[in-house]
Write a protein that binds this DNA or RNA. Structure first.
Lengths: 234, 234
DNA sequence: AACCGCTTTTGATTGGGATCAAATGCACTT
DNA sequence: AAGTGCATTTGATCCCAATCAAAAGCGGTT
């Protein structure tokens, strides 16, 4: 995989915010931004830092998380390719942003980017849509955290990931078993779902025992019975 | 209290989105919208409905909630005066929207409002800011739901309300005890915090017994010891 | 292969909040 | 004042997930 600095071969060119720009506009934005590679486990920004950059995620998965007083953390959001990263108009970073996998971003200094936003109404509109989507995602998490049982939380999370993996995941036949890699460790799943590592692990093995999923090894998961997973949601 | 239909005497004129408009622009928006009174307990919109309106909340408190399969509900957000109500660019309503107190809104048909947004860049910018704030609020709720103990959740919620009540609440002397009315029942607090009515009630009486708050009657609460409340957060 | 560090799994026990149940309080009607 | 319908409080018990503890798996290094 080459890592050219040009937008024209950007892997998320037409899904990310920039998709709304003409080639000419894109060129000026291109001069503003630069590619940045982030290694798995590396933290791009810490909560409380000066809020200097934002950008688009090109590949990989990031987590947004908050450390809690008891030494653990709560993950408040996951970011996937083409998602917007960062928080315009804020002076400080509000959540730690860490790479769950190796990741590639296209980053812009925040203030110049905000000016560019003002100049490109279409882009601001798309950003609004994206923030609305993030809000929807966050509220869905609230429902899951507030009311779900442990098995419902894990089942729901696997379904989310399965939908997300839809294209990149691997499935033998349409409607058949779907296999994909979890981008998170058990501990990170626990931090998303408000559970402990042990509970997540137990729920996973319970589903394996029930024949709903299988765990081929590594971080791979195969969803054998999607309906059974959906039945566990409540 | 008079309920004139004019923007010029709107109680949230300079805090809501419309604050960015010139008097002339405001007039055209004024023709688009209308005042609507909602009685306590009344539901403005149900999840799944066609998404027909949005607007600004002028007075009162609204809740956004999702019914869960077990017959309860999870509240995903509370809306206060000057907050924006509704979800532009979506075909369907995503959460039930219900008045916790009698409330007054300024509502616009969604599609004309979206066109007005496009015409008034400044207003779109303010909406973006508001949605970003709502996202921050939602993520704060995620952290509270995911990791907090029951006493931490209740303490945090009381602190939120106290800050919100700041001006409207009543306090004998600066830094002294603050008294305000809860806009929610015990059951609704439980639905915000992901707890049961009984647990919320027990936490409240525990704090009363500890001398941290007092419950003068009705839905009033007095915060006697803010620091003790903050100490309970984790 | 053997060792190391780390993640995951599995087991035993505990505890905090849910649940079930009943009493009390409070606003409103008659 | 008595009665009605709710909301809230209080009490007793139970259960799910947390906690504590240890074993098993797994990748990387020498």
């Amino acid at each position: 995989m080459t890592t050219s600095e040009s937008c024209s071969d950007c892997s998320v060119r037409d899904q990310a915010l920039c998709g709304s720009l003409t080639n000419h506009e894109l060129e000026s934005l291109n001069r503003l931004g630069r590619r940045r590679h982030v290694a798995k486990g590396e933290t791009l920004a810490w909560a409380g830092d000066d809020n200097l950059v934002c950008g688009n995620l090109l590949s990989g998965v990031l987590k947004l998380s908050s450390a809690t007083t008891d030494g653990r953390e709560q993950i408040v959001g996951l970011l996937y390719p083409a998602d917007f990263v960062g928080r315009p108009f804020a002076d400080q970073v509000d959540y730690d942003c860490t790479a769950l996998t190796d990741a590639e971003l296209c980053v812009f200094p925040r203030e110049p980017f905000e000016r560019a936003l003002a100049d490109h109404v279409q882009m601001e509109r798309l950003l609004l849509q994206r923030v609305l989507a993030a809000l929807g995602d966050a509220r869905g998490r609230i429902v899951s955290l507030g009311r779900g049982s442990a098995s419902g939380k894990v089942a729901g999370f696997l379904l989310d990931l399965a939908d997300r993996a839809g294209t990149s995941g691997c499935r033998a036949m349409p409607g058949g078993p779907l296999t994909f890699d979890l981008p998170l460790s058990r501990g990170e799943m626990a931090d998303v779902l408000g559970l402990t590592i042990e509970t997540v692990s137990r729920q996973m093995t319970a589903m394996k025992t029930a024949g709903i999923i299988s765990l081929p090894g590594g971080r791979a998961v195969t969803i054998l019975d999607r309906q059974a997973l959906e039945a566990r949601l409540d």
